[in-house]
Computed example of a mutant assay.
Amino acid sequence: MGGLTRDPEFGDTVWIVLDFEATTPAGHPPQPIEVAALALRYAAGRWREAGRSTSLIRPPAFAPVTAATTALNGLTPQQLAAAPTPAQALGALDRRFTSGTRYLLVAHHASTEANLLYHQREHCPTLARINLIDTIPLAKHLAPGLDNYRLDTLLTHFAIPRPADRHRAAADVDVTARVFMRLIDAADRDDALEDLAGLVKIAGRTAKTNRPVQQHLFDL
C-alpha cells in the first residue's frame, strides 16, 4: 500500500465509524433515536474490526417520532418507548473509550454527527471531544466529477450493495465503513495524502466541543 497507511500515526489510530438516526423537533436541535458505532484498526495491510455498538434511544417528549421518520427508517414510537434514555445509551457508549488511545470518528456528512454529539455532550463527554473525518470532502477529492456525493451515490460508484435496512444506524455504519475503506485504498495512490496529517487537512472536522468559544468584545 501507499504512504498514508504506512504512516505510524495512521496505524495507531482507532477509527470509529458513527451514525445517528434522529428526529428534528420544531424549535429544538435534532434528537437521537438510534446510534451505531463500528471501531476499525489498520495493521499489516488490512482492516480489522475492533468492536461495535448499537442502541435505540428514547427521545424526549418534545421530540416525538413522526410518520415521516417512520417512513424513512422504520422506527416507530412503540419501538422507542422502552429504549434507553440518551444518558443511558450514550453514556454506555462513552465508557467504551479509553484514555491514551488516538481516536478519529468517521461519518458521512460529519456535521450531522458533530451537531448531535455537541448537543448530547453532557451524556458522552469523551465521545463529543473526538474529532471527525468526513467522507464527503474525502470522496470529492478522490472521486471527482460525480453528480453528487450522497451516500447512495457512493455506494453505486464503488459497487457496494445498498442494504435493505438503509437508514438504520447499524446498516449505515457498515456501508459507510465500506466506502471509507475504498476511499483509503484510493488515498494510498494520492500524493496529497501521504500521511494522517494530509488526510485531516482534506477531510478533517473539529468536534464542536473542541472549538474555541468566541468571547464578547466587552464585558458590560
Rank of each mutant, 00 (worst) to 15 (best):
T209A: 14
N210M: 10
L90P: 00
L193Y: 03
D19Y: 11
L105Y: 01
A61C: 04
T153Y: 01
A203R: 13
A92M: 06
D165W: 01
V213I: 14
L183V: 04
R58H: 05
D191T: 12
D185A: 14
S99G: 00
Q214P: 12
M1W: 14
P125F: 03
T66M: 02
L18F: 00
I184R: 09
R168I: 05
H108F: 07
P212W: 09
H167C: 08
L56A: 13
V175N: 02
T206Q: 15
R205H: 15
Q31R: 10
D12N: 13
Q120T: 11
D134R: 13
R189T: 14
V106H: 00
R162H: 11
D165F: 02
F158G: 02
L90R: 03
T126Y: 11
A43M: 10
A177G: 04
L80D: 12
W15P: 00
A37I: 13
W15E: 02
A92N: 08
A110K: 02
L155W: 12
L220P: 07
A36E: 00
L72G: 08
L105A: 01
L56P: 02
A170Q: 07
N148V: 05
Q88C: 01
D94V: 01
A207H: 05
A61R: 09
H157D: 00
F10H: 03
T135R: 11
E49M: 14
A87H: 03
M181A: 13
A177S: 04
G145M: 04
H28D: 08
W15M: 07
P8Y: 04
P163I: 12
Q79N: 07
G11V: 09
A186N: 06
G100Q: 02
T13E: 01
I202N: 10
D172G: 08
L105Q: 06
N210R: 05
N73T: 01
L90E: 02
D94C: 01
R96V: 09
M1I: 06
A83L: 04
A114V: 15
L138P: 13
G74Q: 11
F97W: 04
R162Y: 14
L4M: 09
L72C: 07
L4Y: 04
G45L: 12
D190E: 15
H119F: 15
R166I: 15
P59S: 10
I33F: 12
D12V: 00
F20H: 07
Q120W: 01
T24H: 14
A37D: 07
P59N: 06
D94P: 03
N210P: 13
A83P: 03
G100L: 05
R96N: 12
R58G: 07
K208P: 11
R129M: 04
Q88G: 03
C124F: 01
A26K: 10
L138H: 06
F180N: 02
A203K: 12
L183F: 06
T85E: 05
H167L: 06
V213P: 00
T98S: 14
E113G: 10
D191R: 15
